[in-house]
Design a protein around this nucleic acid. Structure first.
Length: 812
DNA sequence: CGAGAATAGTTTTTT
DNA sequence: ACTATTCTCG
């Protein structure tokens, strides 16, 4: 490379690439000949090894980036890999294939699908679409969805596909009545997919596999191209993915897989840990390298992780170690309920980040908000956290949850677009044919489905033949459609056709606008509940289409639709320094944060109730917990709630039990919570301790129950004062601020508070520390404080905040 | 026959 | 709470 050196010899590329790697890492980077299995513990520099290995292949060995493929679990990981390669490879990094298995396969199929009779404009069906199709298949087979839940049927189909079993293959293997039903549904489901020119997620893999099997020329092309094939997160690949990798590596045999069996958390999605064993069978000469030095976490965190995972019986022990210091103890704490738990998290975050606010010259370097993540088992848990963030004015970023592309209004527009790209897409057609209402009801749709099926065409085609009268003329006498329905159907058909016909003349944005206008969707939506807000989502969606304008007009629509189908939530996660991250444990895989809070450490949540009975699944839950713990670099908090609401009935549930995983963590790694204002923490801890020291979980629970109630000085819960009660549990707040209960509701338990008036009124101008300037829109009493609704300038939007908590000042 | 209202059932994790 | 299906009315 062109850079001046003060030593006599310029450093060679090899030296530069290997610099700073430990022995095992070096070995992994330079073992470039033949199959390689890297077992990489958490924080062992896995990504570094992969990127440096690629750099080594290119700059030292001289392989063209074009000949290297690296498959990752998410698009985000792929993007990051490419970015990290830029300093090592420069522009050449662009030529590398780096994507998810699914995206890779979609690409191959888009280019080569014709060989196996795949329509050029095929759409990719997501989970919801698949369900619609399975339901239809069941109806057509006259199977009772109560006895045969579509969900279960679909998962049967999906796991068959993940193991490369077609209908025949599954039929062959089936051994029970249930299997028999799945086979029949599978068969019909496949017909429907074909009819719609659609493939589902599993098909992307299955069909790529078949393509390579059946069309050797195509397979050969890719086999020769990819001199090196690498797979990250190998423990989470399924049989189909591994099979494709083997196909691709058949020629050069340079296949490198990187994984950690202890981090396998996707077996429910048919990932198969046995792939790691198979790898060694399939490639007996494979070199095996273990990366065991951890660069990420403190000794304390690593110790906790180690003892936790050691409780799993189905595993090979690893020797994880770190040179990092001991660090600070792990904090285990209990909140009264989920709100209280969230409260604890937020207050702790505030105290952690307080030290470094706007002082000239660097002050104490505490974590910034971007260094902090709160992790949970189920998406629903984000809610309490979000609310707490809003109240306290802590900026946050939720990964996933209500996925953007899953929002109804967005999916509606996507359905229109898909239909324009591929009118045979029955699922999309059914979604929007009566949206806005066009007088096409269930009855008409049933007829339409039957007609289409009878004619062996898609529903759109059936509508078309209705309008030109071709097919149905013969049956005109018994035509099931009323004149009104017929007109409505033809009207819809023309709508789609007219836009599709202009596809060449319109760019992507025009098409979206045409849909919004001509379908009447926009006008209709704005009249709906929360219409404005939902329209905003559509605008955001429309804006995201901008990226595709540079592509040709024909290409843009399909490319856009494809990207929409294949993004993961974590893909759109930004590396923000100014907001905490709320994320599920699953999505957190592969990420790291200086500070990690894991909430919901309770039996039933982690481990989840669905997985508690089965030892295999239980071990997966423990691995999930392990993944969470090992995300933390410096500080780890394990929280739980004494009571947790269930589906809306907040707080009214039975007391919970601390997660058994807490018992796996040695006491000496634990500390009292760092929140001095909280008088209850010591007791909470003793509750946990007691549970650990063998007195049993039950007694710990009873203890903490007594604690919870005493601490909060509250009478027996009654439904009506849920909110007040939960406020009462905000321990430290209570001691530091006098709650203001407005006159309206004096009947609060122990009402020793005088009514006070809010210090803000509607119309006041305020300044918020984080969100900036805003106007008060509403101010109403809430849980002994006031909830103010403020519209902020500068795109911060409208926020609901708790007056007593939020860093707000009145401006004028 | 369709549209909105009432009611029943239910999701753990996601490419 | 949230949706998906069923019920009832125009």
């Amino acid at each position: 490379m062109v850079s001046r050196r003060h030593t006599g010899h310029p450093r060679s590329a090899a030296e530069q690439i290997l610099d700073g790697l430990n022995d095992n890492q070096r070995e992994a980077v330079t073992a470039i000949d033949g199959p390689l299995l890297i077992i990489a513990g958490p924080g062992s520099g896995k990504t570094r090894v992969i990127t440096h290995r690629i750099a080594y292949l290119v700059r030292v060995v001289g392989i063209t980036p074009y000949g290297i493929a690296a498959v990752t679990f998410t698009n985000k990981a792929a993007r990051e890999m490419r970015q990290r390669l830029v300093p090592l490879l420069g522009q050449a990094a662009d030529r590398l294939t780096a994507s998810t298995f699914h995206a890779f396969c979609a690409n191959v199929l888009r280019r080569e699908g014709e060989h196996i009779g795949l329509d050029r404009d095929f759409v990719i069906y997501d989970d919801t679409d698949q369900m619609a199709l399975v339901k239809r298949a069941l109806t057509e087979l006259e199977l009772d969805p109560k006895r045969f839940p579509p969900r279960s049927i679909l998962s049967g189909i999906s796991s068959a596909k993940s193991e490369l079993l077609g209908v025949e293959g599954l039929a062959h293997r089936s051994g029970s009545y249930w299997d028999e039903i799945v086979v029949r549904a599978y068969e019909r489901y496949e017909d429907l997919l074909r009819q719609c020119s659609a493939v589902d997620f599993d098909d992307l893999l299955l069909r790529t596999y078949r393509l390579f099997e059946r069309v050797p020329d195509v397979a050969q092309k890719y086999q020769e191209r990819y001199v090196h094939f690498m797979i990250d997160e190998f423990q989470d690949t399924n049989v189909a993915q591994y099979a494709i990798a083997r196909q691709l590596a058949r020629h050069h045999l340079n296949i490198c897989v990187v994984g950690d069996p202890d981090q396998s958390i996707y077996t429910w999605r048919n990932a198969d840990i046995r792939n790691i064993l198979s790898f060694q069978d399939d490639y007996p000469k494979a070199k095996l390298i273990a990366l065991e030095e951890n660069y990420r976490s403190t000794q304390t965190i690593l110790d906790a992780a180690r003892s936790l995972i050691a409780s799993n019986t189905q595993r090979v022990d690893k020797d994880l170690w770190t040179r990092n210091g001991e660090g600070v103890p792990i904090v285990i704490a209990e909140g009264y309920n989920e709100e209280d738990e969230a409260q604890f998290v937020i207050r702790e975050i505030q105290s952690l980040t307080k030290n470094q606010e706007s002082v000239v010259g660097r002050k104490k370097s505490g974590p910034s908000l971007g260094d902090i993540a709160v992790m949970y088992r189920v998406n629903a848990q984000s809610r309490a956290l979000e609310e707490a963030c809003l109240r306290y004015g802590v900026p946050y970023q939720v990964v996933g949850g209500m996925k953007f592309y899953q929002r109804q209004e967005v999916k509606d527009i996507i359905a229109y677009l898909r239909l324009i790209a591929n009118p045979d897409d029955d699922v999309s057609l059914n979604r929007v044919i009566n949206l806005p209402t066009r007088g096409i009801g269930q009855r008409t749709l049933d007829h339409l489905a039957r007609t289409a099926r009878g004619a062996g065409t898609s529903q759109f085609a059936a509508i078309k033949s209705l309008s030109d009268g071709s097919v149905l003329d013969r049956d005109a006498v018994i035509s099931p459609f009323t004149a009104r329905a017929k007109t409505a159907l033809i009207g819809f058909g023309n709508l789609i056709k007219s836009i599709a016909d202009e596809r060449e003349d319109l760019d992507l944005l025009d098409i979206i606008d045409a849909v919004l206008e001509r379908s009447g969707y926009q006008r209709w939506l704005l009249d709906q509940e929360r219409g404005e807000e939902r329209m905003e989502n559509i605008h955001e969606f429309r804006a995201s289409a901008r990226d595709y304008l540079s592509l040709g007009r024909t290409e843009a629509l399909s490319a856009f639709l494809e990207s929409v189908s294949l993004v993961a939530d974590v893909d759109s996660m930004e590396d923000r320094t100014d907001a905490i991250t709320l994320i599920t444990l699953h999505q957190a895989k592969g990420l790291e944060f200086p500070v990690v809070f894991m909430v919901g450490m309770e039996e039933g949540l982690l481990p989840h109730s669905r997985s508690m009975d089965d030892p295999t699944q239980l071990e997966e839950e423990r691995r999930l917990c392990y993944v969470g713990v090992t995300r933390a670099k410096e500080r780890l908090y394990l929280l739980r709630a004494f009571r947790r609401g269930f589906r809306g009935m907040s707080g009214g549930s039975e007391p919970g039990t601390p997660s058994r995983f807490l018992l796996d963590i040695p006491q000496e790694l634990l500390a009292a919570p760092t929140q001095p204002k909280s008088p209850a923490t010591g007791n909470q801890r003793s509750a946990v301790r007691r549970a650990e020291s063998g007195e049993g979980v039950r007694s710990a629970m009873t203890e903490s129950r007594r604690e919870g109630i005493r601490r909060t000085k509250l009478p027996t819960p009654s439904r009506s004062d849920n909110r007040e009660r939960s406020f009462g549990t905000i321990r430290s707040v209570r001691s530091s601020r006098a709650p203001n209960v407005p006159g309206q509701r004096p009947a609060r338990a122990g009402s020793n508070q005088a009514a006070a008036s809010p210090r803000l009124a509607t119309g006041d101008k305020v300044m918020h520390k984080v969100f900036g300037e805003g106007i008060v829109m509403e101010c109403k009493p809430s849980s002994g404080d006031f909830e103010v609704t403020i519209a902020f300038k500068d795109g911060a939007g409208v926020k609901r905040l708790l007056l007593g908590m939020a860093p707000i000042e009145k401006v004028s």
